[in-house]
């Protein structure tokens, strides 16, 4: 799924600049537990769905080179945290949808879960 499509189907608010259009993501993983994110995501083209908006979410993404974080339930991190994401070239989006709804809508549009290996 292209970034633009994700923004469209979930009516996302982009939080970071610049919006690196044309990027495509095939897999997504939803979690509020950072060690699970580090343990289970093996592909840096994976979208992280989370309801947490603290600094450690960005640090976790930085460690495994994630490029897109989607905050659910309308959560928006502080300016400082958005800045940290920008300096690591991580795109941040926010959607009003819940974790369950966001995952369902993405799945409907062809996004799949991570490989369970």
């Amino acid at each position: 799924m292209e970034l633009e499509k994700i923004i469209q189907v979930l009516d996302c608010q982009p939080l970071t600049q610049p919006l690196e259009g044309g990027k495509s993501f095939e897999k997504a993983f939803g979690s509020d537990l950072m060690s699970d994110v580090l343990a289970f995501i093996h592909d840096d083209e994976t979208v992280l769905l989370t309801g947490l908006t603290n600094q450690q979410v960005i640090r976790t993404a930085e460690m495994i080179d994630l490029k897109l974080i989607l905050f659910v339930r309308g959560k928006i991190p502080s300016e400082e945290i958005i800045g940290l994401a920008e300096s690591n070239r991580i795109t941040l989006l926010s959607t009003k949808a819940s974790m369950f709804e966001a995952a369902g809508i993405l799945f409907e549009n062809g996004m799949r879960g991570i490989d369970q290996t």
Partner: peptide
């Protein structure tokens, strides 16, 4: 609540 406490950190390091 900050996203830690899965009990996966040490196993992750070892792996």
């Amino acid at each position: 609540e900050m996203g830690f406490g899965a009990g996966m950190g040490l196993p992750n390091m070892k792996r």
